[in-house]
Simulated assay, not measured.
Amino acid sequence: MYQVLVDNESSVDILYYPAFQQMGIGREQLVPTNAPLVGFGGTRVYLLGIVTLSVTVGDYPQQVTKDITFLVVDCSSAYNDILGHPTLNAWKAVTSTYHLMVKFPTEYGVGELRGNQVVARECYIAMMEMDDHLQAMIIEEQRTVAEPVEELEEVHLDDSRSERTTRIGTLASQTVRQALALFLKETQDVFAWSHEDMPEIDPSVIVHRLNLSPSFSFVQQKKRGIEVNPEKVKAIMEISPPRTVKEVQSLTSKIAALNRFVSRAMDKCLPFFRTLKRSFEWIDECQKAFKELKVYLSAPPLLSPSMPGEELFLYLAVSSAAVSATLIREEGKVQRPMYFISRALREAEERYPQMEKLAFALVTAT
């Protein structure tokens, strides 16, 4: 089989229905299932079924034969199937995206699969032009989402704090609802609306260490700070607005090299990443973000080195598409940044509640 996507991050193996039909396998061999797959944009695709096939990989005699359980889906794709980490683990395979190669042990030495640069590029472009980017999927745990059996009404617990609300059902009588609302208002102090409402939490729970390698070599400047590499800044400042997907990829890789010096880098670069997920179009939003990035880098922050034993502060920020954190130290009464970190939210992460996004930002920073 050709046009196969090897995806280390896919938790399942996918077989697209057109390829399934070409194999001449009867649809009656599919085992029914109702667990959906979730794609990049949150799009759900329900399975046609599950089938287990014996797959041989490699050139004789360096071959491996394993039974692979495929989830069969009927949707648009430039690929015939996707091999995820269940199969790669079963093969004990090692992948190299740089060399477009997969290697695996066999009884007669090391077997290998080689990709084709031209075909890989054609598939990539074809997938970018599709609306339902389903080339990398994850299986969603089968669960029943309970819908409310009654309408809910909002109750304000504190008239002076409009954000402090909850909801109660409407099937109960008016008298019961009024009594319940009154009870909730009188006991609202048991709700934790923010971290400030939890002052007695053990410091061992809320204090975290930044996961930095002790061998990381900082560049000490005369200004007593860590300065961004001017050559890397210059490389971005001299770039013209991208005209192709490849030029956008080059821009984002250059920005990634400066990530620790850029506050909320993912939010600043979001328009660029969106461009990579569709047919290339450098819209006004991209141009605005491009100019703002250059303005920011024209006077990049000077990062402050830490001192042994001093107290540090971690600031968290979240948006609809990214989480960010800034490590801060105080020098006198002045707060100075030590490190910036930012990460784009993926798929289900974008649907986290605000408090869970903050917790995720903390996990990302540590």
Rank of each mutant, 00 (worst) to 15 (best):
170 T>H: 11
166 T>D: 00
179 A>R: 11
172 A>T: 02
190 V>E: 12
133 H>R: 13
170 T>I: 12
138 I>A: 13
182 L>R: 15
154 E>C: 07
162 S>V: 05
178 Q>G: 10
138 I>T: 14
148 P>G: 02
177 R>F: 01
155 V>K: 00
134 L>N: 11
151 E>Q: 10
187 T>L: 00
186 E>F: 01
150 E>N: 10
173 S>Q: 09
167 R>F: 01
181 A>V: 05
160 S>D: 09
174 Q>R: 13
193 W>K: 05
193 W>M: 05
132 D>E: 12
134 L>G: 06
159 D>Y: 02
139 I>W: 06
160 S>F: 07
176 V>I: 09
186 E>Y: 04
161 R>Y: 04
177 R>E: 02
191 F>M: 08
192 A>I: 07
150 E>R: 06
143 R>K: 08
135 Q>A: 08
189 D>S: 09
161 R>H: 13
164 R>V: 01
159 D>E: 08
164 R>G: 00
169 G>S: 06
138 I>S: 15
145 V>S: 05
140 E>T: 12
152 L>I: 03
177 R>M: 03
145 V>E: 10
136 A>P: 03
153 E>Y: 05
189 D>Y: 07
155 V>I: 07
134 L>V: 12
167 R>K: 01
164 R>F: 07
176 V>R: 08
130 M>L: 15
187 T>N: 13
156 H>Q: 10
187 T>I: 00
143 R>S: 10
183 F>R: 04
